[in-house]
């Protein structure tokens, strides 16, 4: 404990800001993947699986083609395919969404394991110098500026893109025709139907975009956040994304803020490990934080709801 206090300024410093964002980015993508379907009232439990398939595809395609960009594109397509399997099952064949979502997660885990063995003849993980990573953006003029340089320089391309995506989805949900229809479909499908909106078509579209984002999440994880594929490398980030989506009420900006919290606990944990905290405690920290934050946000929502419902205070 003393060691931690003595090194307080080494743990909490400027680089922690980027470390937090860096840990949070894969979860942000995952959370956005879950948020878009949630707007259509579909709980995308399969986020984890979509992401894992995306991660594997990205590494494979980048390795064989030598292009990180093709890797990302292929990952997004693979994510969309997986997502469409779930969509068809859920929308066309009435699958319970949690059940088929867990099925998708299992499938992703198994098939990536299978393919790593079948394609690369390796077990557990695959890495190679031939895998082209997503480049980092170096802004030369920032090099000389002390704090800003440390904060913003050398971000991975997809990290910048995460910010663009948050803003884009916020705009899409709340300002465009498609977003209005999406929300109507999620909140009261019958009303949307009578307004002439093809409800299932909107749901499929939401699932498709969700798959693309989920695939991108995986690509970022395996080509940006790291440069390799490891069995089950998503390590429940998909579920953390779903938790963050609940926290933010499927609103992209609030959802992303929730992810930063998880990223923060992750990067703090990594630093604490250097000072004698057992690794298991460090590793479990983001999970505990996620459960705690999720619970607190639901309790807060509930008590806000109670307050709004109360007859004792005058309304409006």
């Amino acid at each position: 404990m003393n060691a931690i206090l003595e090194n307080f300024d080494k743990i909490f410093n400027v680089s922690l800001v980027y470390a937090t964002f860096r840990s949070a980015t894969p979860i942000i993508f995952a959370a956005l993947c879950a948020a878009i379907t949630q707007q259509a009232n579909i709980l995308n439990i399969g986020t984890e699986g979509i992401m894992l398939v995306g991660a594997f595809t990205a590494v494979t395609v980048s390795y064989f083609s030598g292009s990180w960009f093709l890797g990302i594109v292929a990952a997004m397509i693979a994510g969309a395919i997986i997502s469409m399997i779930m969509a068809v099952g859920h929308i066309r064949y009435n699958s319970e969404i949690c059940a088929i979502g867990m099925g998708i997660n299992m499938l992703a885990l198994a098939i990536t394991k299978f393919l790593v063995k079948a394609i690369f003849n390796s077990t557990g993980s695959f890495s190679s110098p031939d895998i082209k990573a997503i480049p980092r953006v170096n802004l030369a003029f920032l090099d000389s500026i002390p704090v800003l340089g440390e904060l913003f320089n050398d971000w991975c391309v997809t990290e910048w893109f995460a910010i663009i995506l948050i803003i884009f989805l916020q705009f899409l949900f709340y300002k465009t025709v498609w977003g209005l229809r999406l929300r109507a479909v999620g909140q009261f499908p019958e009303a949307a139907k009578t307004a002439g909106i093809r409800v299932n078509s909107v749901k499929y579209q939401a699932m498709l975009i969700s798959g693309l984002i989920g695939g991108l999440a995986g690509a970022h994880l395996s080509l940006g956040y790291s440069t390799q594929f490891i069995e089950n490398m998503t390590n429940n980030r998909g579920f953390m994304g779903v938790a963050a989506m609940y926290f933010g009420g499927a609103n992209p900006v609030f959802t992303a803020l929730g992810c930063l919290l998880f990223g923060f606990s992750d990067s703090i944990g990594a630093r604490l490990q250097a000072y004698g905290i057992p690794s298991q405690f460090v590793l479990m920290m983001p999970y505990i934080v996620t459960v705690a934050v999720l619970s607190i946000s639901m309790v807060a929502k509930l008590s806000a709801g109670r307050k709004r419902e109360s007859a004792l205070h005058s309304g409006n």
């Binding site: 209005l180 229809r181 929300r183 109507a184 909140q187 009261f188 019958e190 009303a191 949307a192 009578t194 307004a195 002439g196 909106i197």
Partner: peptide, 15 residues
């Protein structure tokens, strides 16, 4: 057939 969480105007133009 009105969506509670949307405004009256949004409901009217929906679709």
């Amino acid at each position: 057939m009105l969506v509670n969480e949307l405004t009256v105007l949004e409901n009217i133009i929906l679709g």
